[in-house]
C-alpha cells in the first residue's frame, strides 16, 4: 500500500477515535493535517488523475470530508460546514462512475438543505433541490427538509417547530434548534409590520416563548428598538415614520413666491 495513503488512513483512524471520544479540538487539528495531506493525492478533484490507488484515495477522502462535515455540525461552526460541504460535493456529483455511492450522502445533503433553510437562503435551497434526482426526494432526509421548507413558506410555523421531534438523524438537531430561531425572527418581522403593539401575553404566545423573561431577553438581544410598557410590546414603527413625513410647506411656498417675483422682474 502506498505510504502516503497509509499515513492518511492512520491519521484518519486517530481522527475517528478522537471523534468518537468527542474530543473536538484534537479532531480539528487532525482534520487540518488530513486536508493538507489530501492535497498530495492527484486523483482527487479537480484533477481526477487515474492513479492505481484512485478508488481507495477517493473513498478515503470522501470519508474524511464526510466526517469533517459532521464535525463542523458538532462544533456548531456553520462556515466550516459550508467549506467542507463544498469540498465534499464533487465526490458526490463527479465520481458516480468511480465510487459506489456513500451511505452518508443523503443525510449530508439533507443537512445542507437544512442549513440553507436556517440561513434563510431559499434560492440556493431550491437550486440544490433541483440538482437532486427525483428518486432522492423519497429519501427521508431530503423529504424532511423539503417538508420543512413548505411549512416554512406556508407560514405553518408550528409545524416547523414540531418537526424537531421527528428528525431523521441526530446531527439534525443542531440545525433544528437554529431553525426555531429563524422561525421566530420571521414571526417577529411579520408582527412588527402587522401590529403597532401587542400585549405581552399575546406576544409571548406568538413568538412561542414560555416565559416573560425569555421574551424580554429576546427583545433585548434582537430588537432593542421595541419597547415594553403598560403590559404591551410597542413596535415603535410609528415613532420612526412620523417625524420625517412633515413637509416644509411654508418654506417652500415662500421660495416659490420669491421665484415668481424675481421672474417677473427679469421679464
Amino acid at each position: 500500500m502506498d505510504p502516503q495513503l497509509n499515513e492518511v488512513s492512520q491519521v484518519f483512524a486517530r481522527f475517528k477515535a478522537a471523534f468518537t471520544r468527542n474530543d473536538f479540538s484534537t479532531c480539528s487539528d487532525l482534520l487540518s493535517r488530513l486536508k493538507v495531506l489530501l492535497t498530495k493525492f492527484s486523483s482527487l478533484p479537480p484533477s481526477f488523475q487515474q492513479t492505481p490507488n484512485a478508488v481507495q484515495e477517493l473513498t478515503l477522502a470522501r470519508d474524511i470530508y464526510e466526517h469533517a462535515v459532521v464535525l463542523s455540525v458538532k462544533i456548531e461552526d456553520q462556515d466550516a460546514f459550508e467549506r467542507d460541504f463544498f469540498q465534499l460535493k464533487p465526490y458526490y456529483t463527479d465520481t458516480c462512475g468511480v465510487l459506489p455511492p456513500s451511505p452518508q450522502e443523503y443525510p449530508i445533503l439533507g443537512l445542507n438543505l437544512l442549513r440553507l433553510l436556517v440561513q434563510n437562503r431559499i434560492a440556493e435551497f431550491h437550486t440544490e433541490l433541483e440538482l437532486l434526482p427525483a428518486s432522492a426526494l423519497e429519501n427521508p432526509c431530503i423529504k424532511h427538509a423539503v417538508e420543512l421548507e413548505q411549512s416554512f413558506m406556508e407560514g405553518a410555523y408550528n409545524r416547523v417547530l414540531s418537526a424537531r421531534q421527528t428528525v431523521p438523524h441526530e446531527t439534525y438537531v443542531y440545525f433544528m434548534d437554529l431553525l426555531a430561531k429563524t422561525v421566530r425572527d420571521e414571526i417577529a418581522g411579520c408582527s412588527e409590520k402587522a401590529y403597532d403593539y401587542l400585549s405581552i401575553s399575546n406576544a409571548k404566545k406568538i413568538l412561542m416563548f414560555s416565559s416573560d423573561e425569555e421574551l424580554s431577553r429576546y427583545i433585548m438581544e434582537e430588537h432593542p428598538e421595541w419597547e415594553i410598557k403598560n403590559g404591551c410590546v410597542y413596535f415603535q414603527k410609528a415613532k420612526e415614520t412620523q417625524p420625517c413625513k412633515e413637509i416644509p410647506s411654508l418654506q417652500l411656498i415662500n421660495q416659490t413666491l420669491n421665484y415668481a417675483k424675481e421672474l417677473e422682474r427679469i421679464v
Partner: peptide, 22 residues
C-alpha cells in the same frame, strides 16, 4: 473505470477560505 470530470469549482473556492496556507 469511467473518467471523472469536475463539474464545479465551488469545492476549490471553498478551500480558499481554509485557514491553512498550504
Amino acid at each position: 473505470m469511467a473518467a471523472a470530470m469536475v463539474s464545479s469549482a465551488s469545492g476549490l473556492l471553498a478551500m480558499l477560505n481554509e485557514q491553512h496556507p498550504a
